[in-house]
Write a protein that binds this DNA or RNA. Structure first.
Lengths: 178, 178
DNA sequence: CAGTACATACAGAAAAAACTGTACAAACTA
DNA sequence: TAGTTTGTACAGTTTTTTCTGTATGTACTG
């Protein structure tokens, strides 16, 4: 019974992808949706997804929205088709770097801003106040924040490396076999 | 009132760190714990954490466990001290690469294995079965899986780049100011 | 224009996760 | 040894998230 074997093979990969999408903060259900869509030859409608995954259409709708927000899925236009069509973005390298860059950049920026603001505040205190105990406290915190700041600058450059695609000079893409 | 300003400065950074630790799949509470511990000059006890964060000791216990599992915090030994002491690992560059490597490696490996197994299964089918429809299906899936496999190999090399610390040749660490 | 097909907003149900207090075991103290 | 202190297992509670069904608005069709 070949049918079963082909189906099994596909299902195994879908399940694995689904399990490991937690790194993208994506729920297993949405991961399964992504996996299913990945293997579909043609762009899918919400109803097809619903049938495939045995879930409500509402869930498919929100799931797809999540994947679109993550830049992992595209809405597709096809004339004469009333239903919305969706397909997974075909360039996984791009998908990876996009996700990585957007999320890290956001976090880095927030933390960096907080550090900068607090460092300024502490410097003010150091200038004005001469209570030794207070000063030592402020200085210790200042050191920690400076260290953090340095780390965030570094991380920012790492993100630049991916965003600028220079990472592909450092690590060559595998030959695409398709 | 300098007291407040110093405290504010610290609190701002803790809160920011806490918010952005979702990238490490860490809950804001645990993130706050990490932030508080980061600024503490001396290693902390569970009771100190509990007082600081106004939460139950049980939560501190599980929170610290989480952070230790993530390689972000160390248990510290100090003679004559009955309570367990904890401090955050001081090398954030290492912490980052550790996390990145461990988590991505796990995901990559699982997906790669699933792909390999399924590719083998599909090749078997292609050898045996001559129904054209079946074959086309199997071949299409095989292509997708090969592409995925190539991507995982690439990603694996990226992880190598970090794990081997060669990343620091590509992106220099910021001068540590502390 | 009415009628149908579609996506999604919204409210509620179900499931999962976070958090707490109590109880208990292990390690220490006297 | 008996008596503390400390960390955590566990059960129950609260909060959050995920999922569903119904209802509604919009865009097509004839």
């Amino acid at each position: 019974m070949q049918d079963k074997r082909v189906e099994n093979a596909r299902e195994r990969v879908i399940e694995s992808i689904s399990k490991n999408m937690d790194i993208y903060s994506v729920t297993p259900s949405v991961g399964r949706l992504y996996g299913a869509m990945f293997f579909e030859k043609e762009p899918m409608t919400l109803d097809e997804m619903k049938d495939k995954l045995q879930m409500s259409k509402t869930s498919m709708s929100t799931g797809v929205r999540t994947l679109i927000d993550l830049n992992m899925v595209d809405k597709v236009w096809r004339k004469g088709e009333r239903k919305d069509l969706y397909e997974v973005k075909s360039d996984w390298y791009q998908t990876f770097t996009d996700f990585f860059c957007i999320h890290w950049r956001k976090g880095i920026e927030m933390n960096r801003d907080a550090c900068k603001e607090s460092i300024a505040e502490l410097m003010e205190v150091l200038d004005e106040d001469f209570s030794t105990e207070e000063k030592m406290m402020a200085e210790a915190d200042l050191d920690k924040m400076s260290y953090a700041l340095g780390y965030y600058e570094w991380l920012n450059k790492v993100v630049d490396l991916f965003e600028s695609r220079r990472i592909f000079d450092v690590i060559d893409k595998e030959d695409e076999l398709r």
